[in-house]
Design a protein around this nucleic acid. Structure first.
Lengths: 240, 240
DNA sequence: TTCCTGTGAACTGTTGACAGTTGTCAGTTG
DNA sequence: CAACTGACAACTGTCAACAGTTCACAGGAA
């Protein structure tokens, strides 16, 4: 019963909540492509539920920024234009720079040590096999966790998910991952020294590199977000 | 037709969307008290709709942080504990400090001048009548707007709404409002000089003062957020 | 040919009813 | 008197059907 109630802490016992999670995985996992339309009747029947709980789950994913709804036309997996991605990276910078400041003051040495070992494990796994981005976002989220602010954590998680979706519009760039791990290590080292100035400076540069890489990988044209790469993009997203 | 289509940009033409707006006003306006339970059948019938669109609106307000849903027990207006409010102010700091940095680099002199005149108007109106917080959040949101980042704007708006709800749990403190206007003026002055360092420092202090005032006004006990003062907060402004 | 128009299928928005859960309260037992 | 138990009422979760809108396509006019 212990691990059962553990799982039930999030009370995944209504169709609506379960569907939200399934839908999010489908969106972030790529089984629903950016721009693709969600057909309510077919999706509901394939999930074995009715349209009511499905629509409630859709509403929540709209608030999360993963879906877009146009009245009387349906729900679409969100697409991102180049300026929107730049905006998201700026927002991410606002959140994570503050997280660095807070973590520098609040994180215990033990917590930072845990982060270092996780980082070392990641580096090891990357050297053996070479997956493209082996849990890359996990480091940032764990760092934000050390800031000890749940509201900040929720916002950061939401931005990460949106950027993760935006990134799924692009090809992967494994070369960037290796540099990122090094930069993560430098950042943690500064945190251990409690050097706020240097830590925030490192994070700023790190996020700049990350954004440049993402933008380049996306291969988006100048103004609006028409994807023209290999991905079979069927829909263009709407306006705000 | 022009102003009609202007209004229709947000396409408030489905019950679900209209209900979301109405519910938000009820929560922020105080006609639904923090901690109060929302009875779906009575609320739906009083709004003249069925439970479907109402439930969809509730889901979105849950994502916004204004409501809480407990499975099989219902939706409740969110209450805030003291540490949650501190967290929200920290998050607000992260967002608005970054907004100050961006605005310092991007806002045009004309835009800053507009902000100054708005501020002067507010000061005038405060001297004549003395409302407690005359559009206090408006200044901050307009400032964030000058950062030219819609994602940042959305996050800041969401935090503002949650803090607005938290504040409705408290009595009002008109004395703080006057000091706030002065601090706003100082901040805009630094923005006009494009002095990022001083501007962010001012904003940091300003938010600290604001948080101290809010915490003191809330008079919350140590741990949880049981609302104990009943102030009927009249209006909160609506969306953009 | 090109553009306009109207018709119909497909889909979303909404509703009312049914099913399952929760909380209450009277009745009972120690 | 206190604690437990079981049934009832109220409410939420879910479903299937109806209503209104959108989109595509066939047919006709310029």
């Amino acid at each position: 019963m212990s691990e059962y109630s553990q799982k039930r802490l999030l009370s995944r016992n209504t169709f609506s909540e379960a569907t939200e999670s399934v839908l999010r995985d489908m969106v972030l996992g790529g089984s629903l492509q950016p721009g693709e339309r969600l057909n309510e009747v077919s999706l509901a029947s394939s999930l074995g539920i009715s349209r009511g709980p499905l629509r409630e789950a859709i509403q929540r994913l709209v608030s999360e920024g993963l879906l877009t709804v146009i009245s009387h036309r349906g729900a679409f997996v969100r697409t991102f234009s180049r300026p929107e991605i730049v905006e998201l990276y700026e927002l991410r910078g606002a959140l994570e720079l503050h997280a660095v400041r807070l973590a520098c003051a609040r994180a215990t040495d033990a917590e930072l040590e845990d982060l270092e070992t996780m980082l070392a494990d990641t580096a090891d796994r990357m050297r053996d096999t070479d997956p493209a981005y082996p849990q890359e976002p996990d480091f940032h989220l764990r760092l934000v966790l050390l800031a000890g602010n749940q509201a900040l954590m929720r916002s950061a998680l939401e931005v990460q998910r949106q950027l993760s979706l935006a990134r799924s519009m692009s090809a992967q760039r494994p070369t960037r991952a290796r540099a990122a791990v090094v930069e993560h290590g430098d950042l943690v080292a500064m945190l251990r020294r409690r050097d706020v100035e240097e830590a925030t400076a490192l994070m700023t540069r790190h996020l700049d590199h990350s954004m440049d890489s993402a933008i380049a990988a996306l291969g988006l044209p100048g103004g609006d977000g028409k994807p023209e790469g290999d991905t079979r993009q069927n829909r263009s997203e709407n306006d705000i």
